[in-house]
Write a protein that binds this DNA or RNA. Structure first.
Lengths: 113, 113
DNA sequence: CAGCATCCCGAAAGATACTG
DNA sequence: CAGTATCTTTCGGGATGCTG
């Protein structure tokens, strides 16, 4: 069965929706940090320097709202909080990985001008 | 021959480099506009509403600096300017296309919460 | 440890008007 | 047509200190 064509307007809208979700310097690096094994707040903060706690906190909330990250609180003392990726977030990683490689190559392109 | 592993730090750096190039609401939509056939300044502006001429102008300059767009001036009256994609920009479109489709699906994910 | 509260700033982006 | 000039507003993000 054939998909309906996507119109110009829709393309722009979908693209901007995605850009809105990932916008800023931090959201994708934070996702990457979690993927690479940093589940605790301070771990993530160390992985993605020099993000401040205030900014990290707000980024994590937005990622949660977009169903990319799950926040789990363990009621211990001191309190233990774990951030994990949702399975849905896996749909984003092909894009992120392409971006990593693109950034790697782009550095050469701009340097060798 | 095996590629050297990319370290955590490098991943973050490359990723942030890419994010820096495409940052903001407009650069990728502008590239898409050109790809879809809008080569003139006003055409692009109409394709990507509601971008102001001031913003579009600065975005195009940044895209030029990153070798993604070429600006060509034809010395006619009135002056004719054409923006075209560089071949290098083709390396970015796999990412952009994934983002379009991701945005399309994401809308459903968030709506159906 | 995992944040929140405040204060603050520069850059991104919008509004409007104007030029070669 | 293809922008530039000015002015203003918004907002992402930094600095610092504090709390359960």
């Amino acid at each position: 069965m054939k998909e309906r064509e996507i119109s110009d307007k829709e393309i722009i809208n979908y693209l901007q929706d995605t850009l809105y979700v990932i916008n800023g310097k931090w959201k994708l690096p934070v996702l990457m940090a979690i993927k690479r094994g940093s589940t605790r707040f301070r771990e993530i903060q160390r992985y993605v320097p020099p993000i401040t706690s205030r900014v990290l906190s707000s980024e994590l909330k937005l990622l949660e709202q977009n169903k990319l990250v799950t926040r789990k609180v363990y009621d211990e003392i001191p309190v233990l909080v774990e951030y994990t990726l949702t399975t849905y977030s896996e749909t984003l990683f092909p894009i992120i990985e392409l971006m990593v490689y693109w950034g790697k190559d782009h550095r050469k392109v701009i340097a060798g001008k």
